[in-house]
Design a binder for these strands. Structure first.
Length: 476
DNA sequence: GTCAATGATTCTCC
DNA sequence: GGAGAATCATTGAC
């Protein structure tokens, strides 16, 4: 609507309002606006149809006031101030502003329509719900850790992921803090701005027609604007939480290779329990501890290893040989130490069947071990008697039905193995630990490709354990 | 970039 | 619930 139309409308409306006011005044107090009676220091034309003065004069007068209002900005500051004061004190001002407010109200309503009462935004509700569920909004305690715990449970983890949990919680708390700080800032800014605008409008209402309703509406607009900013804040917070969550979940999916030492420990256990590579819970825990990994990781590792070994035994032959030798060396060392102890502690049984010479069993050095391995796998076992190595090669042959090069080698050393086993068992009572714990039993895998007697032993000895370890795995 | 190795996940079966 | 099997996804060597 153009201003001229508005002014015209206003003039008409004001004229009629004044007529009404005059009529009311006349009827209630007998004080007439007409007849140039003085009211508030301003002379007004008489109401229409009461004293013969026509409406055109009044319209012109009102138009004059409006013109003054409109042109007030064209004047110098001093002049404008004076004019403003004059208009402000004009006795017609309240009536004029009242009419203008009414017109504005009507115009505003038609334009704004149903914008006033906004229904709750579903997107905002979704954001609120999500922030509440993630523990960002709402009460401080519970939410974040609950979300982290839920994510952990979903991933199958327990206390194993405590580090990641605390990391997740810490980051979530950070997001939460930022969110609340920003929210507080927005609310404060909103309140400050609202107060400022209200004061400004109240101030301006002295010089231009501003109704309290309009101020109220303006406050509503400001609040809506700020709530839309808040929604952006909520949206970005939600995004941050989602990113954090996905990173957290991805991080758990991300794998890291175990350390060499850990892999060696696991392999040693696997190959030394090849007839029944199913570690008990206790063994798993111990392995986990030794390898600095989790029990579930140990389970995973053995699950993968069993399958991959069974799928491609040939490929693992070298590895099996290596670990067999390693285990043999360990066992021999243990036996040597035990035998020495036995000898030292039993003066009544000197040289009792297994006289170990230093030059033969000094296997601490890498060179000695290498020599042992070389001799062992070339068949030239020399003076070394290796416990259990024969089982490995027999196992290799029986596992996949093919004959291995190692099988022959194994046969060569078998007699020595038997001797060694016998001697050791006599010397230090390691029957269970070495002889009973067949590393590579010919019965390791059954015809269906599965391990026979795959029941998990209640307790098993770890290859890296010393002879003092309690071992009750009689299944091997 | 390719590829083998490998840890993790998912599904199915018992 | 645990194991086997298939598969995914990442790592690390080349």
């Amino acid at each position: 609507m153009s201003f001229s139309i508005c002014v015209a409308q206003c003039t008409d409306s004001l004229a009629s309002t004044m007529d009404d006011q005059a009529r009311i005044m006349q009827s209630i107090g007998g004080v007439s606006l007409a007849g140039h009676s003085v009211q508030g220091g301003m002379t007004l034309p008489p109401p229409h149809g009461h004293d013969g003065t026509d409406g055109d004069g009044r319209k012109q007068d009102i138009g004059d006031i409006l013109h003054q209002i409109m042109t007030i900005t064209d004047q110098s500051l001093d002049e404008a101030q004076a004019k403003k004061h004059g208009l402000n004190c004009h006795r017609m001002k309240p009536a004029l502003f009242s009419v203008l407010c009414e017109i504005k109200e009507k115009t505003g309503l038609s334009i704004r329509g149903a914008q006033e009462e906004d229904p709750p935004d579903p997107q905002l509700m979704r954001l609120d719900n999500m922030l509440l569920a993630e523990g960002v909004a709402g009460p401080e305690k519970g939410g974040g850790s609950a979300a982290a715990a839920a994510a952990a449970v979903a991933s199958g983890g327990t206390a194993d992921n405590s580090i990641e949990h605390s990391d997740y919680r810490a980051k979530l708390t950070q997001i939460r803090q930022i969110y609340h700080t920003e929210l507080e800032k927005y609310e404060q800014a909103c309140n400050e701005f609202t107060t400022h605008v209200m004061n400004l409008l109240r101030e301006q209402s002295r010089t231009r027609p501003i109704s309290p309703k309009e101020i109220e509406r303006m406050v509503g607009i400001i609040h809506r604007k700020f709530s839309s900013i808040q929604m952006q804040l909520k949206q970005s917070t939600c995004e941050a939480v989602m990113i954090l969550r996905s990173r957290f979940l991805d991080a758990r999916r991300k794998r890291r290779n175990f350390s060499k030492q850990a892999t060696e420990i696991l392999n040693e256990y696997f190959y030394s329990h090849l007839s029944n590579p199913y570690p008990s819970e206790e063994a798993k825990e111990e392995l986990a501890k030794k390898c600095s990994i989790t029990v579930s990781q140990v389970s995973n590792w053995f699950g993968n290893k069993r399958i991959r070994y069974k799928k491609n035994i040939g490929k693992f032959q070298e590895e099996a040989n290596l670990y067999a030798a390693k285990t043999a060396v360990n066992a021999a060392q243990a036996a040597a130490v035990a035998a020495q102890n036995s000898q030292a502690n039993s003066p009544t049984t000197p040289n009792s069947g297994f006289q170990m010479k230093d030059e033969e069993y000094q296997l601490d050095s890498a060179e000695s071990k290498n020599t042992l391995l070389t001799n062992m796998f070339t068949g030239s076992s020399g003076s070394y008697n290796l416990p259990n190595s024969g089982d490995m090669f027999l196992s290799m042959q029986s596992l996949n039905g093919d004959s291995y090069q190692g099988a022959q080698v194994g046969a060569n050393v078998q007699s020595q193995v038997d001797t060694m086993r016998h001697v050791i068992s006599q010397t230090a009572g390691y029957n269970d630990a070495l002889g009973g714990n067949a590393m590579y039993s010919p019965h390791s895998l059954n015809g269906n490709g599965g391990w026979q007697d795959a029941t998990t032993p209640s307790s098993v000895i770890l290859p890296t354990e010393g002879p003092e370890s309690v071992h009750s795995d009689t299944s091997n």
